[in-house]
Design a protein around this nucleic acid. Sequence first.
DNA 1: AACCCCTACAACCGCCTGAGG
DNA 2: ACCTCAGGCGGTTGTAGGGGT
Length: 262
Amino acid sequence: MYHSNCNYIMAAPACSSSSSSLVRKNNRDVMRKKESDGVRKGAWSREEDELLKKCIQKYGEGKWSSVPSRAGLKRCRKSCRLRWLNYLSPAIHRGKFKDDEIDLIFRLHKLLGNRWSLIAGRIPGRTANDIKNFWNTHLSKKKLTTHEFPKNQDKVGSSIHHHRVQLKETTEDEDDTYRKGKIEAIYKPQPKRHSSSEAWNKAVMVQPEESTAMANETNECLLTDLMKENSDNPVSLDYEFDMTDQALLLDAFNDWEELLNS
DNA sequence: AACCCCTACAACCGCCTGAGG
DNA sequence: ACCTCAGGCGGTTGTAGGGGT
């Protein structure tokens, strides 16, 4: 696989070792290169990336169903789209998440749940996949655990701790309680799809010709609805929406409306 | 050195939605 | 109204690489 450091796949080495790890590795290589119906799967090679880049540069984004043939790739449309949007697009900013980005993710996840694309829309240069992966590997486990954080609070632990302080301005006692893992999950489970609540639908249905006042009223209605949902959820009682969160949410929905109306 | 375990993240899968016929 | 297809999304899996034993 070529990973974040762009180490592209090398051909699987001949099985010259009897070690179980090597055997396991070779099996992985076989799995990785599996193909079905002539459609390649698994990690992208440098050559494939180049072909895809050239194709997008020439024809632009979109029309993903015609990209494989245009680019001369034995990949499905979805694979091409994903590769471009999550890795090759020049708009993507790679590298470690900064504290302010993590803070934003925390807040937006609290407000929006696992709506990664919406969250990504508020964090320039980051893809939904990036944020989802970051959340799943760094944050979600920590938020749910009732165990103590590792003593050597490295990048993850320290970020979360830092976060905690930023988010709620805890007292030292509270913070100590948090470190000891006594505070339960802050984040509530999220719906997979958009809420079917009346408020949500109203917010989506606001038309461009409708007054700003009405749109604001609708958004506030939505906000109230979402906040009520949160207050009904016992695991979220620890967290209170503050003005920044409200502003973020309203901001996000204003953007969303623009998108819908465009 | 060999093995095991864990982390990070790229990639896939299945599902949903909306557009067009 | 129904079907098909493309685009998009979130959940999950697979695996490279690193650290510990």
